[in-house]
Write a protein that binds this DNA or RNA. Structure first.
Lengths: 343, 343
DNA sequence: GTTAGCACTCTCCTTTATTGAGTGCTAAAA
DNA sequence: TTTTAGCACTCAATAAAGGAGAGTGCTAAC
């Protein structure tokens, strides 16, 4: 069977309608609302063909048709026209990145927030992945008698800092000495290659202050853990309730629990690390839990190095054209902001 | 009418039962399940009295009784026995505070998380309120050629740090000079008293580097904003769906939207700044939105200075005895952790 | 003061129609 | 050969009706 122009038109009409109404679309609706110049009976026949070809599905015998994942895929790849953002939205995003000083985490968090506000879907954002990044500089900075700061500058300019307590009798010179040793040893390595206990040199220096050494080990292991913590930020989790497909309390609940599984979200986002916007529709998602959702992701980078990804999660009945437009814009805006600031 | 011992016993029985079953409790249930030695008819009469006195309510004529806010209040104040935590729970909390090094925000965040896991309610935690705290030390620390760190140590030992970029040609000496000026000017002041633009001295120093000055102003204003940001951490937002009273999608949704109103949560938590555990039942809450919820809060402190509050939000049909026990324990554990670490 | 008994109320659940949107098929029209 | 009109049929959703069950309040006896 051939997928001729009329079939495509009908498919597009059905998808458009379904995205708006969330109700199965019948032949009569298509005939009336979309001016295709043929009768409902003809459309009925075509719809039957489209179902046979796998682009449409029927919830039950006497209902209209609903697009299948395959149908959406065709729509996303060939049929839809990606609109660009309207002025208001673009302005809103611009506003977000106007403040020049933000902690990196804050930037990502706010990005997720705005993303969910603009799209009305749930948004996710992956924190920059330190595991991909090497250490450029480590410095222990004395703050006052009690505290010092452990600062790690990475190859992508991202900073990680942690406050640590220092015991009495440790002065700036000592901290400098330790900093130098750490630098010698770890510059150019990744976070996961840090293994403090191996450094015999450090042990020597710390011989007279074993407690501080232990504390330092704690800090560094913790930094390490933070890297593996797979930090994921969420936005607009309550948005899901606006959608008719999640009026069922059971679905809504399982969706929300899903969002609390950070590891899962991490995997989903991390899997889309090629540059640009990516759309995963329903069962295309590797995880069963998302088989009724679509996920649109975009990467963000610092310079030409991909740092992480942002995304939105909605029902397969998603406004793809808008979603793709927003993600594309947002990914680029975030990248350019980061590059300007830390690049 | 007098609230004699038998009435109290019956009230307690009803509340206990209702907390477990979430179903209106009838006279026959009380007679059968709780051995009070009287018939259901007698209990019926007593329940009628208790309703007249305002401790019970009837959803409709032919249903059992449900405790009123006033009933719960009596229960919390007089009737319930506060159990202490079981070993497992205590162990779990201990585990949480075993790691010695955490960013303060991380500590609070994790506390909220554990709180929701243990209680199965939604938890909230107020970040330490910097507005209550004075500045002890300000230091600009050079990291490398591009970056410096602005570190603020407060009177309670809490640190606030922000990475800033420094323009070329600014060296450590210069940063030190600026640090000293800032210290002279702001030591002992609160965050809200910072008004950089007033410092003529600083302007002089910066005369030759206006851009950096502006950037510094940005950073400090931003720190300021962060203080007013009213940071609130949430845990277990999906827990609400486990409760029968939130099976109604409409209620669940409005509850979740409520949780996104950080300002509101902030007010609720900030209002309970006296030391110790506080229980707000239903309409006792200042905000209408929470009139079907109960909130149990506890403060946490550093040394003897109250820094913030943590709390759990559930239905008025809450396991008060457990909730109070957990909050009491948790508040103390968090305080002692903070005090040990930063005190 | 307590209890048994009974009429009464109100929700919840199940069963039964009824409606309406939509399909698939057939036969006629283009 | 393609399109269309017509019609029987299907199925979900909604409404109406009829118990069943849990619980109360009242009365009269213990």
């Amino acid at each position: 069977m051939k997928l001729d122009a009329r079939k495509l038109k009908i498919l597009q009409a059905i998808i458009n309608d379904y995205i708006i109404t969330a109700e199965p679309v019948g032949s009569r609706t298509v005939a009336k609302k979309y001016d295709l110049g043929v009768s409902s009976a003809t459309i009925r026949n075509e719809m039957s063909d489209l179902e046979e070809m796998g682009y449409l599905e029927q919830p039950h015998t006497s209902a209209g048709r609903v697009p299948s994942d395959k149908g959406y895929r065709l729509y996303v790849d060939k049929l839809m026209k990606v609109r660009s953002l309207n002025d208001q939205e673009a302005e809103y995003i611009k506003e977000l990145y106007k403040t020049k000083i933000m902690q990196l985490e804050q930037v990502i968090f706010n990005t997720a927030k705005v993303l969910s506000e603009i799209t009305n879907y749930t948004s996710v954002a992956l924190a920059p992945q330190l595991s991909k990044v090497t250490i450029r500089h480590i410095q222990l900075v004395p703050i006052d008698k009690e505290f010092a700061l452990l600062v790690v500058v990475t190859s992508s300019g991202i900073l990680k800092d942690t406050v640590i307590r220092v015991p009495d009798g440790i002065d700036g010179d000592f901290l400098n000495k330790v900093s130098n040793i750490l630098n010698d040893k770890y510059r150019g390595k990744t976070f996961s290659e840090i293994d403090l206990k191996e450094v015999s040199k450090i042990k020597e220096v710390f011989a007279r202050n074993q407690k501080f050494f232990n504390s330092l080990v704690d800090v560094l292991t913790h930094s390490l853990r933070a890297v593996q913590d797979k930090e994921v930020y969420l936005g607009g989790t309550a948005n899901i309730f606006k959608l008719p497909e999640f009026q069922d309390i059971f679905k809504a609940r399982s969706f929300l629990s899903l969002l609390e599984e950070k590891d899962l979200l991490y995997d989903v986002l991390a899997s889309s690390q090629d540059d640009g916007v990516k759309v995963s529709i329903g069962a295309e998602n590797h995880y069963d839990e998302f088989k009724e959702c679509s996920i649109v992701t975009a990467t963000y980078s610092l310079g030409d190095r991909v740092l992480g990804a942002i995304g939105i999660i909605g029902p397969t009945r998603m406004e793809y054209s808008r979603a793709v437009a927003v993600m594309d814009h947002m990914g680029k805006a975030l990248s350019s902001y980061l590059t300007k600031l830390y690049g």
